[in-house]
Design a protein around this nucleic acid. Structure first.
Length: 262
DNA sequence: ATGTCCACTAGGAGTGGA
């Protein structure tokens, strides 16, 4: 069973690229972030043609999340409680069947922009709300995944330049403490479970040739309960799909994929 | 190099966001 997270940076602009990725990787379940599209515009038939059913929580222009699944899928909830005015950023569904069932949530966490912007304290408050919400949902004995674009760099290993970024957005102690509090509700970073020492990134700025200069950040995670870790076979950051394909532009994020036993 | 890309409004290219 393969589960993935991917910030696609615009579904309308990325659809053909995504279809290529789905055909090549054939994941069972995918959480998308940054649809930048309203729900009534979502191209369900395009994904159904490839065997995926989708649940969506979108909005015009910005944000927006969705879950695709070729296993049975049942929508549970949309939106982080009390945070609706910060955009469409959370969707949760039950995927799979029997012992292989996973409680799967995908998130597009606020960016924060910079430390002087109003969005920065709102970002911290949003993470506090996420921790409260996660406390009510994480059960170590059940398979649950919280994945997405967290817009926080957890440690110095996860940034291309800790000194340059010290104390700046994505890298502050305040943000790191919020992320740690979410993880401490009973989740583990699946990539770090398998690769505790490896420097690997999931996002590279479009500007300045960042990808080729290895100027990236690891801000996209699959977090899982102990029950998920016990089923974990492997995790991969799909860096190849940050590259142009057949002239098509990639997202600025790479997909992250975990393989679990069924 | 703040050097790119996306969506929106608009009916062409500029703006805001990331």
């Amino acid at each position: 069973m393969q589960l993935a997270t991917w910030n696609i940076n615009g579904l309308r602009a990325r659809l053909d690229y995504i279809k290529l990725w789905l055909a090549e990787r054939a994941p069972d379940v995918v959480g998308f972030q940054e649809l930048k599209m309203e729900d009534d515009k979502f191209p369900h038939e395009e994904f159904e043609a490839l065997g995926y059913r989708c649940v969506t929580h979108g909005q015009k222009s910005w944000n927006g999340v969705a879950i695709l699944s070729r296993l049975p899928i049942e929508h549970i909830e949309s939106g982080l409680p009390g945070q609706a005015d910060f955009g469409a950023r959370l969707i949760r569904a039950r995927v799979g069947e029997g012992d292989a069932t996973v409680d799967f949530t995908t998130l597009y966490c606020p960016n924060g922009k910079n430390l002087d912007h109003d969005d920065y304290p709102r970002k911290l408050a949003w993470f506090d709300a996420l921790k409260d919400w996660a406390m009510g949902f994480v059960d170590p004995s059940q398979s649950a995944i919280l994945c997405g674009d967290f817009n926080i760099v957890p440690t110095a290993l996860d940034t291309w330049d800790e000194e340059k970024w010290a104390g700046d957005i994505f890298h502050t102690d305040e943000e790191r403490a919020r992320l740690a509090a979410v993880v401490e509700t009973g989740l583990r970073d699946l990539y770090r479970e398998r690769e505790p020492e490896t420097q690997a990134f999931s996002w590279w700025d479009y500007r300045g040739g960042a990808f080729h200069r290895k100027h990236g950040l690891r801000i996209d995670f699959l977090l899982g309960t102990d029950a998920v870790v016990s089923r974990l076979k492997g995790v991969e950051i799909d860096r190849d799909f940050r590259k142009k394909k057949d002239g098509m532009t990639a997202s600025d994020h790479a997909p992250v994929i975990a393989t679990l036993t069924d």
